[in-house]
Design a binder for these strands. Sequence first.
DNA 1: GCTTACGATCTGCCGCTGCATACGGTAAGT
DNA 2: ACTTACCGTATGCAGCGGCAGATCGTAAGC
Lengths: 132, 132
Amino acid sequence: MVSRLSRQLIAAEQPILAAQSVSMWGYIVLTALDRTPLRTQAALARAIGADKTRIIGVLDDLQERGFIRREPDPADRRVHLLALTPAGRRLHARVRRAILQAEERLLSQMSAADRQTFLRVLQALDELDEPG
Amino acid sequence: MVSRLSRQLIAAEQPILAAQSVSMWGYIVLTALDRTPLRTQAALARAIGADKTRIIGVLDDLQERGFIRREPDPADRRVHLLALTPAGRRLHARVRRAILQAEERLLSQMSAADRQTFLRVLQALDELDEPG
DNA sequence: GCTTACGATCTGCCGCTGCATACGGTAAGT
DNA sequence: ACTTACCGTATGCAGCGGCAGATCGTAAGC
């Protein structure tokens, strides 16, 4: 069963995220913005599968701490353009490295080939879910 | 990030479980008992990483519907011996088959080798988490 | 027998999430 | 101008899950 495993993996990630004072959603947002710099909040929510109303606080926090820019689009003043600041990019890289290290430790018992295949399939699945 | 993916996978599993009137925890319990027939509730909770108090309702339900036996141990009347009934075993097999089918559909885009490796690593990770 | 420890159960608190609603600002079609 | 639709935001509700404490029955050590 996937659910139980994912619970534990999420739990395992918590201390890493806490060490950088980033929430799980915060990291997800950073990751999304690192991939595609600018968007609207609604698009962000859709992209990461989160609730529109629930990521507002996350964005508030990231903005206050200077990790993201959130400016009204001059062309359409309803939407907020979202982008990482250099500090945000650095933060994301740092957290990502820490998480990869932890994964590395977890997967250290598998062969390198297995590890690679596993992560590749994982990513493929991730991208598969995005449109739906 | 794993968390988002697992969310979606869990969501994908919900309808399958609902079709058999089994909760997520119910299925996890069935799976655990299918592997090792008898235990105590505390051990069960530890094994599946659940809260002692939260699985009581799940067990009540499964017992009422005749899928598990829960009898006080004659040797230690504090503990409840847990085991699947034949009906429980059949139910578990049915749900498991449905879930595997769904997985099959999801993974159909990968090569057979990739799929096999992926599932193998997944299971290895699962077993890795158990003791800790 | 008394104390201590443990299992199952119940209850309540807290935090997170999904969901729906409402509101103000803004854009676009007519 | 008016209607419609969309964005961001605030708010409240409901359900779930982790966690702590209390209770009761039972077991084990002394």
